[in-house]
């Protein structure tokens, strides 16, 4: 079996937002829609103040609450753990958006552009009408993974089969791969470090592991 997961090493992330920009560039998401984002969180009280950069987005859960609620079956989960949306089935009810504890889903009801009513050339060229009025979210760059694997590449190792955000990460904070492969980088990172997953109490089984300290 294969279970693709993302690992975010919170000790390494510097909040540069390169992954954010890479996602934006790759997926041509409209203004206000950010499938990969890095939250800049301040915590604590002076003098013990901490700043945390938290990469987040769709967690491609084991038990996706978005899939459970979706009335149209547009949301599905692949055998490799990637959660997908069928644009042609989705009715845009946004039930999935309120069911997701990770604020990972978006819906825009009209085409919007970065600089007002007129699109720039690149926006006009990449406008995806099929994504207007339906739910959208991070796909783990599923198309890229599939195409890369078809060409004999390995997700998490070869850039051609790895999500754009991971490829762009300057500090190696974001890693991607198959958790069911004990020799994969993500498996080793998870085994060798202390980690948590967000909102586990909701029973979602998120596929996004946050490393926060070395292993004990």
């Amino acid at each position: 079996m294969t279970r693709y997961v993302m690992v975010a090493d919170l000790r390494r992330c510097v909040g540069c937002q390169t992954c954010t920009a890479a996602c934006k560039e790759t997926n041509a998401t409209p203004p206000g829609v950010q499938w990969r984002k890095v939250l800049d969180i301040e915590a604590g009280q002076y003098p013990d103040v901490r700043r945390i950069f938290l990469p987040t987005g769709c967690q491609h859960c084991d038990e996706p609450p978005c899939l459970e609620v979706c009335p149209s079956t547009a949301t599905q989960k692949r055998r490799d753990g990637i959660v997908t949306i069928d644009d042609d089935l989705c009715i845009g009810c946004a039930y999935c958006a309120v069911a997701c504890p990770y604020e990972a889903r978006f819906k825009v009801d009209r085409a919007e552009y970065a600089y007002g009513a007129q699109p720039m050339d690149n926006e006009r060229a990449r406008l995806a009408e099929e994504k207007i009025g339906v739910a959208t979210k991070c796909t783990f760059c599923a198309g890229r993974i599939d195409a890369g694997m078809a060409a004999g590449k390995v997700p998490g190792i070869h850039p051609e089969a790895t999500p754009a955000c991971v490829n762009s990460c300057i500090s190696g904070a974001l890693r991607f791969g198959d958790m069911d492969d004990p020799d994969s980088a993500v498996s080793r990172l998870i085994a060798d470090n202390q980690w948590f997953r967000m909102h586990e109490d909701q029973g979602t089984g998120p596929g996004f592991y946050y490393l926060w300290d070395k292993g004990q």
């Binding site: 899939l67 459970e68 609620v69 979706c70 009335p71 149209s72 079956t73 547009a74 089935l89 989705c90 009715i91 845009g92 009810c93 946004a94 039930y95 819906k107 009801d109 207007i132 009025g133 339906v134």
Partner: peptide, 25 residues
Amino acid sequence: CVWLEIGKPWRAINVFFHPQTSWMT
């Protein structure tokens, strides 16, 4: 009201596709 809110109102028939788990269906 809710029909006015959905993004693809002319596909509203798809709401019936997932009785297994969706309370909206």
